[in-house]
Nucleic acid binder design. Structure first.
Length: 502
DNA sequence: TGAAATGTTGGGGCG
DNA sequence: ACGCCCCAACATTTC
């Protein structure tokens, strides 16, 4: 389709929003606005082959985040166009409908997205529509961080040393105040029609009071963290009974705030406040782990399904639906594990320390493949993020890059006593145990009134499970390994995970 | 960003 | 005063 281009009707530019649902420090948006009127577009793509479509909890977040972004665009004289379908087909269609001259976007790093976007770029080029992509979600592009021997880092510390010493904290891009609108808007879906919110049952009732999706919520969360929790972060971050973490993860996943903005905020905080360096540095290290996860996923795209260490492809897993259900529904009989799984279900979130404990329990006490846990988290976490989720599960399993060794098996009683010393976290999420005294709270079966509590006995014995896991580990270690080399794909579970429809 | 088993050390009670 | 035992506290090693 060719239309005459005039000063009155310049050809618009499509700004394709994906996981960059913000106006501030958004390079694709800013660059597009320099060239012409823009058509902000979001595509709900559940159908491109290989796609990890947003899980149940993530869709709740997306619904609200899109509403927030749409309102912010309207306030600036623009509008958010919503379309559903295969992204390639939708983009081509909107470009044709609007006679767009170009499509601008910020890059994604998931393997399916990289492949899809490359195809879209080629298809648009064939129709004389140019494409321009930018970095909005990483401190450094994964292909720019290399070891001295020009290979990707496989160990976190040298990776982070290299990246952070090179990173320059440059000025951020301000949010545009006004946005040029096209002469006509293309059709848009109503967000309600996408049915991103669950109805029967609505299991998100506990979400809205705890979360505020959208760019404003992200900014407020950042400010709250700097004001209330940064001082003390290094120690308090490990305490699920305290508000010691940033809770920025879902905002980061959807790009309502980016790591450059976080770096900038912490650098400013360090300039203004004495004594926060160690805490700020510690927090930035966590941003570094996110960066490392993206780096790994880019260089080892198979890691969402396959063990990075191929020795684990021979691990003798036990595929027990009954045990998986006990874990996922918070009925293992180990208080800290059950508290975490119930917090996840009720709020769409789980404290990081408890994620490690629950993941270790699924993998090492129950011997269920980490991929199954990763799928559950993908569906239930508001901050579900393919890179972080895959890298973190492999880290706990011991199959990943720079991972915890498999024999590092968390003892759920000791972890509870160390990090929830008063049992406040457990009592909050496992009300059956509210009346148990602190001495017995993490091993309730030792309490004299245990049988009257209505709380189940442990589904596995810790000592036995531990030695069994170590036995199983012996069966697969010492295999010659190069990351990503051959071996069978872990078989799919023999049972399904229709999590949100119990 | 473990836990458990095993080894070492040193203070105190006691014959 | 001394050796012996106990054991807590810490250190090392093993999984």
């Amino acid at each position: 389709m060719v239309t005459r281009q005039t000063a009155m009707h310049p050809r618009p530019i499509i700004v394709w929003f994906r996981q960059d649902l913000r106006l501030a420090d958004n390079p694709a948006l800013v660059e597009a606005l320099k060239v012409g009127p823009i058509i902000p577009l979001f595509v709900l793509d559940d159908v491109t082959p290989g796609i990890w479509k947003p899980g149940g909890a993530s869709r709740w977040w997306l619904h609200h985040s899109l509403q927030s972004l749409a309102a912010d665009l309207v306030a600036r004289g623009s509008k958010l166009i919503l379309r559903k379908g295969t992204a390639g087909a939708v983009i081509a269609s909107v470009a044709a409908e609007t006679n767009a001259q170009a499509v601008y976007w910020n890059r994604l790093y998931e393997p399916y997205a990289i492949a899809r976007d490359a195809q879209i770029k080629a298809a648009l080029a064939a129709n004389s529509v140019s494409t321009h992509s930018f970095n909005a979600s990483l401190l450094a592009e994964p292909w720019t961080v290399k070891t001295g021997s020009d290979s990707p880092y496989k160990v976190f510390t040298p990776f982070w040393r290299s990246l952070s010493s090179r990173y320059r904290n440059e000025p951020l891009l301000p949010a545009p105040r006004k946005m040029r609108a096209p002469s006509a808007w293309p059709q848009s879906d109503a967000i309600r029609a996408w049915q991103l919110l669950p109805t029967k049952p609505d299991w998100t009732k506990g979400f809205a009071s705890r979360w505020r999706p959208g760019e404003h919520g992200a900014h407020q969360t950042m400010v709250n963290f700097l004001d209330l929790a940064l001082d003390g972060y290094a120690a308090n971050r490990d305490r699920p009974d305290m508000a010691g973490t940033s809770r920025l993860s879902p905002h980061l996943h959807w790009g309502e705030i980016g790591p450059r903005q976080i770096w900038h905020a912490l650098a400013t905080s360090m300039d203004r406040n004495d004594g926060v360096e160690t805490h700020a540095t510690k927090f930035l290290t966590e941003i570094g782990w996110r960066e490392f996860a993206y780096h790994l996923l880019y260089h080892f795209p198979q890691m969402t399904e396959r063990n990075l260490n191929p020795a684990f492809e021979r691990f003798p897993w036990m595929d027990s639906e009954k045990r998986f259900k006990a874990w996922s529904s918070g009925r293992t009989g180990y208080p800290i594990v059950d508290a975490g799984m119930r917090e996840l279900w009720a709020t769409g979130y789980m404290h990081n320390r408890v994620r490690m404990i629950t993941a270790s329990f699924l993998i090492k006490h129950l011997l269920i493949p980490w991929q199954h846990g990763a799928r559950w988290f993908w569906d239930t976490l508001l901050d579900a993020d393919l890179a972080n989720n895959s890298a973190s599960w492999q880290w706990v399993a011991g199959s990943g890059a720079d991972a915890a060794p498999f024999f590092r098996i968390f003892n759920p009683m000791i972890q509870g006593e160390k990090f929830d010393p008063d049992g406040r976290y457990v009592r909050k999420w496992v009300p059956e145990l509210a009346g148990v005294d602190t001495k017995h709270i993490h091993r309730p079966w030792t309490a004299s009134n245990f049988t009257s509590l209505g709380y189940h006995s442990p589904i596995v014995d810790h000592v036995h499970a531990r030695s069994q896991a170590l036995e199983a580990f012996k069966m697969c270690r010492n295999t010659a390994s190069s990351p990503g080399a051959g071996g069978p794909i872990v078989p799919p579970p023999t049972f399904s995970y229709r999590v949100r429809e119990r």
